[in-house]
Design a protein around this nucleic acid. Structure first.
Lengths: 355, 355
DNA sequence: CTCTCGATTGCACACGTGTACGGCCCATTC
DNA sequence: GAATGGGCCGTACACGTGTGCAATCGAGAG
């Protein structure tokens, strides 16, 4: 374990200046005093209201700009009842899929003048309670969830605060919320068909036990492909991990006992573990065994061999989700559910079945 | 106190209709009316102030709890001048290193009642301006930066808002801020020594042109190891990318012309690209060529072969940074700079030099 | 019985911004 | 010359919470 130690900085003087602790930022009233007008006039001028004389408005804006005045979003939020703030929940930012979505969300949020509160739920009920409480107290205008493990009692809590909610890649049966989803069924069916086309007949499925709707749909896509080829998905060819590589290794070990020649993984993280286990068994990829992923995370094309997978436009999905949320926050009624196409990306981790 | 009827003259219950758009959350005054006390008493009761009678305080808390009251952090922030909010800047959340740090930061921030505003700078000056402006308007209590590409004029802008700042893994010469850093020099020296110990003599360095301080320190560590072994770092054995795999591929191609037998990469992302280029040249790792990384990102041990690298406790570093920021925000004067030890992790991507 | 003091509680502000409303000044119109 | 009206600006609130201060009440002390 790494230990930290205090750097022996040259001198005890972190003193960078005067005690500026009580220095408060200047307010609209300070600007008003300088410009010799009342503060409402300043307020209007800064909003480019047509109610103020063009000349004085210009003067006021100049003063505000030169003095480095920054309007308090806090005070404004209090009176307008809109904070221009959203809450973004993820299971963990450390997951590459979530990171990409967060990136897309943050970008479009900022482009529209919204700031985002980030919260990690870690799939921990206690922490989820705190997140909901925090968002409620912060008076966020909307909520966006990318947590794939939203608990049954979690969403209702969110619901309580009477604010629009958008989910990414998760849709509970009877959900009261909007969502942006990937075409799970079609995507997984496409990889399975790809493997069938390469001659594979014993194809395994390695899912995510916490994948809920997503896992169910992908599994269904896998099943559909097999059945269309006149095969049936044998129970011993199906196992579940938790989207972490080490759990995938364990699950893959069980699957190998059933002698498959290929495996469809729930996502790329799972494929990472599967690949390792397969190699540990002395099998070569793709000569002896084929592996597929889902997501097309940044590392997929840099693996050895590069991973055949299904691409999700993750950043774009974050953007779409945020755009839906923006419309909902504007009061629009008919914001549609969004379904994004998945794209099969064939690389070198899949090959013709060995004779 | 006079009992006020909350209902309007029309007397129609607003609880039914779909348009709950104007439904405002209940305030401290609503609770006060129900409890038949004044609102300051409610305020004090909810703060567990000893100034209110234990019985009434209990009653008030019960009412607040049952009615689902949530204190407005917005209003509180306005009057107390402290929002209990921090701004977190990253170059991009989509980078695994940043994600891990963010995770650590968010966790400890929330544990201390702080919410975090996340902002992506994307190393874009225009976007950086907007981030600073947003944080200033939101009246954040502190700022945390994990952007490895902080521009020269970016930090001064941050400085303007008179708020404590903590940097992670970046330290500008003459910096006015606090920071948490990894032992870049020692870490890179350790991997270089490891390669020297395996008999390598022509060892290349593949850096990050935007790594600034970090790159300079790691390069220095590499140099120090070579010189201690009586070697000198030839210029043709040094190249720079930008921490993205494809740029690393291009840089690695140039390096290979100098016929090295091993390469020290600035970080794991760089190693990803280097590995691919090396293989494209028909070289086997580690039989023909050795590769090392830095960071120990989640995928490092799942690469084929598993990557020898230097571990950074990224999440812990985020935690430490947040803890420093907390102390600074509490007004502590003597918060030390923090330096974290790096740990060499030897795996299979490095081997004895080929005869 | 009166005075004093401590325990509670309410009143009146403040925080920084937005906005309905009224008032002033000046030009135009009859 | 007076009435009208529009442009511009200030006054007076409101938003929801925190806090200094005064007021009230009851009990114990003298």
């Amino acid at each position: 374990m790494a230990e930290e130690k205090a750097g022996k900085a040259a001198g005890i003087a972190p003193a960078q200046g005067a005690p500026r602790r009580n220095q408060r930022p200047l307010s609209i009233k300070d600007i008003a005093r300088i410009a010799r007008v009342s503060h409402p006039t300043v307020s209007r001028a800064l909003q480019n209201s047509p109610l103020v004389n063009a000349k004085t408005a210009e003067k006021i804006r100049k003063i505000a700009d030169e003095s480095g005045y920054r309007a308090s979003a806090v005070a404004r939020g209090l009176v307008t009842r809109r904070t221009r703030t959203i809450g973004l929940v993820v299971t963990t930012v450390a997951d590459p899929f979530a990171s990409e979505v967060v990136c897309g969300v943050e970008q479009t949020a900022n482009d529209h003048g919204y700031s985002v509160f980030l919260a990690d739920s870690h799939a921990d009920p206690e922490r989820e309670r705190k997140v909901v409480r925090a968002f409620a107290e912060r008076r966020v205008d909307g909520i966006l969830v990318t947590s794939s493990r939203v608990g049954a009692l979690y969403l209702p809590m969110l619901k309580e605060m009477e604010v629009p909610i958008v989910l990414v890649n998760d849709q509970h049966p009877g959900a009261f919320v909007h969502s942006v989803m990937i075409a799970n069924f079609e995507g997984m069916r496409a990889v399975a068909e790809h493997l069938l086309g390469l001659g594979h007949r014993r194809i395994a499925y390695l899912g995510d036990q916490f994948g809920y709707q997503s896992d169910a749909e992908r599994l269904a896509g896998y099943r559909a492909a097999l059945e269309a080829a006149g095969l049936s998905a044998a129970p011993e060819l199906i196992a579940h991990g938790n989207s972490k590589p080490d759990a995938a290794m364990a699950a893959m070990e069980r699957l190998l006992a059933a002698r498959p020649t290929a495996v469809c993984c729930y996502n790329d993280m799972t494929a990472l573990g599967a690949l390792r286990q397969i190699r540990a068994r002395g099998l070569r990829v793709p000569e002896d065994f084929s592996v597929t992923g889902f997501d097309d995370l940044f590392f997929a094309e840099y693996l050895q061999p590069p991973l055949t997978t299904v691409r999700q436009p993750m950043r774009r999905m974050g953007q779409l989700a945020m755009e839906s949320l923006l419309r909902l926050m504007e009061g629009e009624e008919s914001v549609p559910q969004i379904r994004v196409e998945a794209e099969l990306v064939v690389r070198a981790s899949t090959g013709r079945v060995k004779e």
